[in-house]
Simulated scan of single mutants.
Amino acid sequence: MTVVDWIADWPGAALLRGSATAYLLVNAAHILGIGLLVGAILPLDLRLAGCFRAVPLAAIGPFLSRAAAFGLAAAALTGLWLFSVRPAAYIGNAAFLAKMGLLALALCNVGLQHIGPGYRAALAGGAVRPATRIAAGISAAAWIAVLVAGRWIGFV
């Protein structure tokens, strides 16, 4: 038995394949997680990139960052569950592979941004460094690209 077969045989996958209601609810939770992620990360990225300068980063940054992390966790868990319904088909789907690559890029960018001193300094009320602005722009573009690639999956 391959890993793909094991994933497809997981009881959670069988539940979604056998129940339109369960699939609907997990899919809705996935969309909610994506909405929370993108709805939190884009305003934060825009603020870091230089928009909305009247809004203090120290006030909104920690909240938006945590909201995005919660949305990411919900989207990832429900996304893995949805993937389990047809793993072999998704592995062969160019849009799914593009989404996974873009997701890896977006997550690496977040990791680098959060370990860098510029992000922490900006959240503490300091000036936003040019590297932090660039990383915020990359983040916004990457998360939008992940979203578009995710929608593309159903059309390939």
Rank of each mutant, 00 (worst) to 15 (best):
A59H: 04
G92W: 15
L105M: 12
L77R: 13
A67H: 11
A74V: 15
L77S: 03
G111L: 07
A95I: 02
N109Y: 08
S65E: 03
W81S: 15
A88G: 13
A67M: 12
L82Q: 06
I60H: 02
C51S: 12
L77W: 14
G111P: 12
L107S: 09
N109E: 04
G92F: 14
V110S: 10
L107E: 02
Q113G: 05
A106S: 09
M100Q: 10
A94P: 14
L80Q: 01
A76K: 09
A88C: 08
N93C: 07
S65M: 07
A73V: 08
A98D: 01
T78Y: 03
F52Q: 14
I60Q: 02
R86G: 11
A68Y: 00
K99T: 06
G101I: 10
N93E: 08
F63V: 13
R86A: 13
I60T: 11
A104G: 08
G92V: 11
D45N: 02
A95F: 14
M100H: 03
G79A: 04
L72H: 02
L48D: 01
A73P: 09
F96V: 01
F96Y: 15
Y90C: 10
M100P: 05
R47N: 00
I91T: 12
F70P: 00
L105W: 12
A94Q: 10
K99I: 05
R86I: 13
A68F: 00
R86V: 15
A58P: 11
G92R: 14
C108Y: 14
A67I: 05
V85I: 11
N93K: 09
I60L: 05
A95S: 15
L46F: 03
Q113E: 07
G101A: 12
A68Q: 03
C108V: 14
G79D: 00
L80T: 05
L102Y: 08
F83E: 00
L112Y: 08
A104Y: 10
L82H: 04
F70H: 05
L112W: 10
L46C: 08
A74Y: 06
Y90G: 04
L97D: 06
Y90H: 15
G50S: 08
N109G: 03
A59M: 08
A75M: 05
L72Y: 01
L77G: 05
P87N: 10
L102M: 11
S65Y: 06
W81H: 06
A76T: 15
G92Q: 10
D45A: 04
P87T: 07
L72Q: 01
L105Q: 02
L112C: 10
A68L: 02
C51H: 07
G101P: 07
N109C: 10
L80W: 03
A69L: 13
M100N: 05
N109P: 04
A95P: 10
K99P: 00
A88D: 14
